[in-house]
């Protein structure tokens, strides 16, 4: 049994302007010890997918359907009290912004101890020892001296480490990391990604890595889900996605990336803007921006189907296989060309 199995997840929000379908039929599974990358631009629904799984959306304005089976138990239909038991214990989350996700009026030690005592019946002393152990594990120098410091006394990278320590303190089976390194510098990003990789090896947790950075996905994920306008457009093993991308949106994302290792005079740009989810385009949601658009794309929504040669590689596009292979090869060749 998969650790987490998400089936046809749909989430919509009531707003003044109407109903926004932020997640529209998303399915994936996460196995023990695996890393799933979810890539997409802002507003593609990648964060909302995970907030829905965790039950963290505002109840009054949110409607969700589908299933999110956690070890066989549907989280969408679980009671709040049950969810509270799972969250922070079996499943935890690292948020994007380390500056605002820690409580500024409590010491980090107190916040870490709270996280332990919510789920374990232990004394403060034991909890604090555990907190110290984690702070050391995430590489905070002189952890003994810093456990009673307040969040403002830490730098951004250090705060993100505290967040990771807090997320890992109860040995979760699944860690959801929502853009964990976006607010950080490249050098700090490298430190944090290394740390997550090492902790995954030590603790055997599964990770869902939400990011807009294809580089981060390439270096960390086993499986990748590409989202566009609330839907999954491609889902594949990381090597297949980067070597045989099948969807024009994925090609656009890869082509629009300035790269260190190759020379390109002009970047491939995806024209236009991501669509509004209040009134998503008809047919394939990418069709207004797609350079390969055909008549059928405007009227019929493509299904997420396996490619002919690989049942694990799913994609949602009407283009024929021959064109896809040709375009994917062209893209790979142009981005693989070495400098000099």
């Amino acid at each position: 049994m998969a650790l987490l199995e998400v089936k046809d997840l749909r989430t919509s929000f009531k707003t003044e302007d109407g109903i926004v379908k932020a997640v529209d039929g998303v399915s994936f599974t996460v196995e023990k010890g695996q890393t799933l990358g979810i890539v997409g631009e802002s507003g593609s629904g990648k964060s909302v997918t995970c907030l829905t799984i965790m039950g963290l959306n505002a109840k009054r304005t949110t409607m969700s359907s589908g299933e999110a089976l956690w070890k066989g138990k549907d989280l969408l239909r679980a009671k709040s009290s049950e969810l509270r038991k799972i969250r922070g214990d079996e499943m935890s989350m690292i948020f994007q912004d380390p500056m605002t996700s820690l409580n500024p009026v409590h010491t980090i030690g107190k916040q870490l101890v709270e996280a332990v005592q919510l789920h374990r019946d232990v004394t403060v002393r034991v909890a604090k020892a555990r907190a110290l152990e984690l702070l050391k594990a995430v590489g905070i120098p002189k952890a003994e001296g810093r456990i009673d410091d307040y969040p403002h006394q830490f730098s951004g990278g250090m705060r993100q480490r505290v967040m990771i320590a807090m997320a890992l303190i109860n040995d979760p089976d699944l860690l959801i990391a929502d853009e964990p390194t976006t607010a950080l510098d490249v050098t700090t990003q490298a430190q944090i990604l290394n740390l997550m990789k090492r902790l995954q090896e030590d603790f055997g947790s599964a990770i869902i890595m939400i990011t807009h950075d294809l580089g981060v996905v390439a270096e960390t994920a086993d499986d990748v889900v590409v989202m566009y306008a609330a839907k999954v457009v491609e889902h594949a093993k990381v090597h297949d996605l980067f070597n045989r991308p099948q969807h024009p949106y994925t090609w656009g994302l890869m082509g629009s990336l300035p790269r260190l290792e190759t020379d390109t005079e002009r970047l491939v740009q995806i024209p236009g803007q991501p669509p509004s989810l209040l009134r998503p385009p008809s047919g394939c949601r990418f069709h207004p921006r797609c350079p390969y658009v055909m008549g059928v794309c405007r009227t019929t929504e493509p299904k997420l189907l396996a490619t002919e040669r690989d049942p694990s590689h799913l994609q949602a596009c009407h283009l024929d296989q021959e064109t896809k292979d040709r375009e994917a090869n062209k893209l790979i060749e142009s981005t693989m060309a070495e400098v000099g």
Partner: peptide, 26 residues
């Protein structure tokens, strides 16, 4: 050198093959 090697490469084979020079501290 450390900055260059810290940039994630959007290519799983090449990205994971090279060894990043990770700077310590802030």
């Amino acid at each position: 050198g450390a900055l260059l090697s810290a940039v994630p490469i959007p290519n799983p084979e090449r990205g994971r093959a090279r060894e990043a020079i990770v700077l310590e501290g802030d």
